[in-house]
Amino acid sequence: MLPSFLLTSSSGRALTAAAVTACLATPVLADQTLDAVKERGVLKCGTALDVPGFGYPDSNGVPGGMDVDYCKALAAAVLGDAEKVEFIPLTTTTRFPALQSGEVDVLFRQVTTTFTRDTSLGFLSGPVTVFDGQGIMVPKALGVTKATELDGATVCVTPGSNSELTIGDYFRANGMEFKPISMDNFDEMRSAFFSGRCDVFTSDRTYLGSIRSVAENPDDYVVLDETLAKSPLAPVVRQGDDQWYNIVRWTVYAPMIAEEIGITSENVDDKLSEGAPMIQRFLGKQAEFFEGIGLEDDWAYNVVKSIGNYGELYERNLGAGSAIGLDRGDNNLYFNGGLHYPPPLL
């Protein structure tokens, strides 16, 4: 009597798995995510593998992107090897059940931190990895310049995303009507937009940039200047494991601190011999400084060595060095006019 989709589709499987494992998972193991990961020897990282810029295979089939790199950073911090990570590809609808059920240790999957997600889903959000905002992309041929001109439009939106809620609020607040089209499958949805089934695609600006980058002719599409909603993207962990939460938090900060103190993946080995106390602490040269986090002393070194500092990370995946080509903008460190402000390493 099971609907076939419950077993054949990825979202169906994840939902079923969530329900089954929530029933059966032994409670003792899951409390100590760090021990579980060490014992397993591999980090299970929930991410997307179909979103250019965040998680997408390159021409050799090797996944890359902002989220993928942060997964690697966490593996490097915890297991000392950035390759000891298993990427579990998740859609917007499967990501939360997968985390709840313990199928993944952490989500680095373009999750916008919201009140409900933190308080009703049993999650904790880490520090922001990318400051994003919800934008609107239209074909240039449509001749639309403002979002308020979109009364009656058909809007493509990813199911289970906060954009789905925001776009409804926006149209209602402005007394306009719209028809949403939301599909579980990103590729299917992209082609629906490119074929003209929707007038508008709404999502986070970085994601719109990534959709645009795979269009046949990216110049046919334009992302409007307006930002409909804030979208701070952050990693997510389950509540109830404070140690693991701290590890994820500081793994996000590590590349930012590295950028702050001038360490890159290239010069990190030279910096080992430098005497500045901040650098000494960061690279694990100060005895017992990192004891409280439960990781090896060289965890931050491993992070920077494997994925670089935040500047390198951004340029490579979303910035000028990538197909997406976004400005750094809000994602600069605080002293360059951006919003990233890692706490001091003291």
């Binding site: 609907p3 419950l6 939301s182 499958n185």
Partner: peptide, 27 residues
């Protein structure tokens, strides 16, 4: 009919996926 999700027809399965997503009550 649950295959509707593949092409974005808002069916029962879709509605419940959305509900689970908004509320987090997957069980």
């Amino acid at each position: 009919t649950s295959l509707a999700v593949a092409i974005g027809y808002p069916d029962f399965f879709w509605a419940l996926t959305i509900t689970i997503n908004i509320s987090g009550h997957s069980i």
